[in-house]
Amino acid sequence: MQQQTGIQTNPVAALGRSTISFVNSLGDIFLFFLEGVRLIFSSPKQLTKIIRQMYFIGSKSLFVISLIGIFTGMVLGLQGYYTLVKFGSEGLLGAAVSLTLIRELGPVLTAIMITGRAGSSMAAEIGVMRISDQIDALDVMDINPMAYLVSPRIAASILCFPLLTALFDVIGILGGYLTGVTMLGINSGVYFYRIDTSVVMADVAGGFVKALVFGIIVSTISCYQGFNTHKRTDSVGPESVSNSTTAAVVLSCVLTLVSDYVITSFLL
C-alpha cells in the first residue's frame, strides 16, 4: 500500500504510468476497431442497421454540411481574392479555393462537424445503454453488442465521411464562385478553368483517403468511449456518460488533426 502511494506521488513515475495507460488504451482502441470491422460481415442482417446509421450520419447531415460548405467556400473566395489581387493574379482564385477545399478543409471540417453531430451522439447513446444495463441485456440475449451497436456505426462512417466530404468540396467551390465571380467580378470561365487545370487526381484521391481515415477515427473513438463508460475511473452514472461524450469529441478532433498532419506529410 505504502509503495503504491509512493508511485502516485512521484511525478516521473506518474508520467510513466499515464504514458503506459495511454499506450494501453491506444492498443485497446485498435483491437476494438478490428473487432468492429470483423463483425461488419458477421451477418446479412447488418445491412439494415448500416442503412439506419447512414440515415443518421449521412442523410441528416446533408443540410448542415451544405451550410458550412457554402460559407467556407464564400470566405475562402473573399480572403483569397483580397490576397491574390495584391499580386494581380486574382485569376488564380479558383485554384486557391478548390485546392484548399479538396486537400485540407473539406475532409477536416467535415470530420469535425460530423464529430459534433454524430460522434457525440454515438458516445452518449452507447454510454446511456451501458449504464442502464442495455448492453448487458444484449449480451445475455446472445446478441453481440459490438456487432449490434459498434460495427454498423463504423461501417456507416466509413461510407458517409468520403461522400459528405465530396459534397462539402463541391458546395464550397460553388461558395467560392458566389463571392469570387458574382460578387467580386472575376470571369466565371477563368474561375472554372483554373480549377480544372490545377486540381489533379492525386489531390482528389488524397482528400478521400483523409476522409476515410477520419471516418474510422471518429466512429471508433466515439463508440469506444461510449462502450467503456462503465470503466471510467473519474465518474459514475450520468456524469460518466457526459465525460465519455466530452472525451469522445475532444479525442476525435485532436486525433483527426494529428492524423491530418501525418497523412499530409505522407501524401506530399
Partner: peptide, 10 residues
C-alpha cells in the same frame, strides 16, 4: 433476464 429497469433499448 429481466433487468432492474427493464433495460429495453430506447
Amino acid at each position: 433476464v429481466l433487468f432492474q429497469d427493464g433495460a429495453l433499448l430506447g
